[in-house]
């Protein structure tokens, strides 16, 4: 039996609502304005929030709904957050650090 017809499409979230997004707001609050991203290496993925649910693993999907730009912003803010947490003086990578384009 074929599925019943899908419901009407949803409207896009208003752009202004992005400013209120809980996840991005938390990231912005944690990163001082102007914090540069790390000069080498990449954030491959970020899983935001805790998972208090004790039965299955949850993923925040609201950021996904805003825009690709918002998703990129989450990754960039995460990289800047790491820069803030970096141990040791800035711009002084360890002597054994691989080159920036290392795999």
């Amino acid at each position: 039996m074929a599925p019943t017809p899908d419901p009407p499409a949803s409207p896009a979230p208003p752009a202004a609502a992005l400013e209120q997004d809980h996840v991005l707001a938390a990231l912005r609050a944690a990163v001082p304005d102007g914090t540069p991203p790390p000069p080498q290496g990449r954030v491959l993925a970020v899983k935001l929030g805790y998972n208090p649910n004790s039965s299955s693993v949850g993923s925040v999907v609201s950021v996904l709904f805003w825009s690709a730009t918002a998703a990129a912003a989450a990754l960039n803010l995460t990289a800047a957050l790491l820069a803030k947490h970096r141990a040791g003086p800035p711009d002084a990578p360890p002597a054994d650090a691989p080159p920036p384009d290392a795999p």
């Binding site: 996840v23 290496g41 990449r42 954030v43 491959l44 993925a45 957050l81 947490h85 970096r86 054994d96």
Partner: peptide, 29 residues
């Protein structure tokens, strides 16, 4: 395998970083 997982509490996040970023963060390979 891919580098490391960095866990932060504020805001809470598990961040997958590559080997180069792991090194820049000052950690052993």
């Amino acid at each position: 395998d891919f580098g490391a997982i960095v866990a932060l509490d504020d805001p809470p996040a598990l961040i997958h970083v590559d080997h180069a970023l792991l090194a820049w963060l000052g950690h052993a390979p």
